[in-house]
Amino acid sequence: MSEVYKRELVYLVTAVITVIMFVEYFFLGTWQLAETLRTYATIIANIALGLGAITLVVSHAKKIQRRAAGVWAFSAWLLIFLAISFLSGLAGWAMTGSGQGNPMYDWFFRYVYTPLGQTLYPITGFYIFSACYRAFRARNIDAALLLIAGCFVILTNAPVGGAIWGGFPIIGRWFLDYGQVPGMRTFLIVGAFGMLAYGFRALLGRERGFYGEVAGGE
């Protein structure tokens, strides 16, 4: 019996909701039941936002407990700073209805979160530059085509390309407007087929990875 509500019933819920979305789209236009389910999904997704935070807190708490060498002090700092910034934001929300209502939280938001966010992601700019030198080589026809298209697009995206030779932006623009379309369109088409196949497998209860199931286990 337990297998029924732990597995089969779950697959049934997925299938029924998927079919409801289909029926609304293909037969009804709008359907109150489908709308309600979407609202529920939205609320669930919102509540689930905290899941990642809790997992991370647990993981760092374990590192502190183990006194993991070279790590635990950073984990302790992370938890302390998380607590300070979260509680200040919560206080701001309780007082004014917005986390930013608290000056401390607002300051962290503007002057710690923002510059760090803007700094961390561009690190890949360094790596892409050295990767161009180390890996971007015309070893065969495939790589040569990639390299040629890439170089023309690079010289089109930067204004200097046109200053060097007027043909660069013309050819590069062709790659952007037409040259890349077959490849990108193919990704859309095969991606859509992949999604349909994956979706139907989920509908039939054959695809279960997202439930946290592993083969032969819970």
Partner: peptide
């Protein structure tokens, strides 16, 4: 800045090849 950095990328690709 994009012009200079993109030129550097092209120079790196050329030199590497």
């Amino acid at each position: 800045a994009l012009s200079v950095s993109h030129l550097m990328v092209i120079a790196a690709v050329l030199l590497a090849n």
